[in-house]
């Protein structure tokens, strides 16, 4: 009876491990497939080209070197740093250049990173208050160096 119970437990654990492994593999495969999809690659390239066309020379130079660029908020003059990405990729910087908090907003829909960053730039540079009104904010935690909402 004890041996049967042990066998059952072992079988269950093995089945669980197999299921988790298969699930992880399928997610990784799906991600790889979408990243290598020529349609997605073309979309990303087109969006990045559009972004670069609309950046100032200084912003473009910064983005190509560091994968981020700075914008100045139209209403408060606050400096924001937009990092390459689509989510929680905007840092608000204080007058000393230090991180104050992070912001997350973007265009509705599943758009490429270039399109998202261009939308964030235009929104902050032309109507900062309206953009931040819809955004989610994350605060810095000096004790841990992490963020929370």
């Amino acid at each position: 009876m004890t041996a049967q119970a042990a066998l059952a437990v072992c079988s269950f654990i093995l089945a669980l491990i197999a299921a988790v492994t298969l699930s992880t593999l399928s997610v990784a495969l799906a991600r790889y497939a979408s990243a290598a999809d020529p349609i997605f690659l073309a979309r990303d390239r087109r969006a990045l080209k559009l972004l670069k066309d609309w950046l100032s020379p200084e912003q473009l130079a910064c983005y190509e070197r560091y994968s981020f660029f700075d914008v100045i908020g139209s209403d408060t003059g606050t400096r924001f740093r937009i990092h390459h990405g689509t989510q929680t990729n905007i840092e608000e910087l204080g007058s000393n250049g230090r991180l104050v908090c992070k912001w997350c907003f973007g265009p509705d829909g599943n758009l490429a990173a270039g399109d998202v960053m261009l939308t964030q730039k235009i929104a902050l540079e032309t109507n900062e208050r309206a953009a931040l009104a819809v955004a989610n904010r994350s605060y810095a935690r000096p004790d841990r160096g992490a963020f929370h909402r």
């Binding site: 559009l50 609309w54 689509t86 989510q87 929680t88 997350c104 907003f105 973007g106 265009p107 509705d108 829909g109 758009l111 399109d115 261009l118 939308t119 235009i122 929104a123 309206a130 953009a131 819809v134 955004a135 989610n136």
Partner: peptide, 10 residues
């Protein structure tokens, strides 16, 4: 002229 979708919080 560039058109972008409405803004939403992330």
């Amino acid at each position: 002229t560039l058109f972008y979708p409405r803004l939403v919080g992330g």
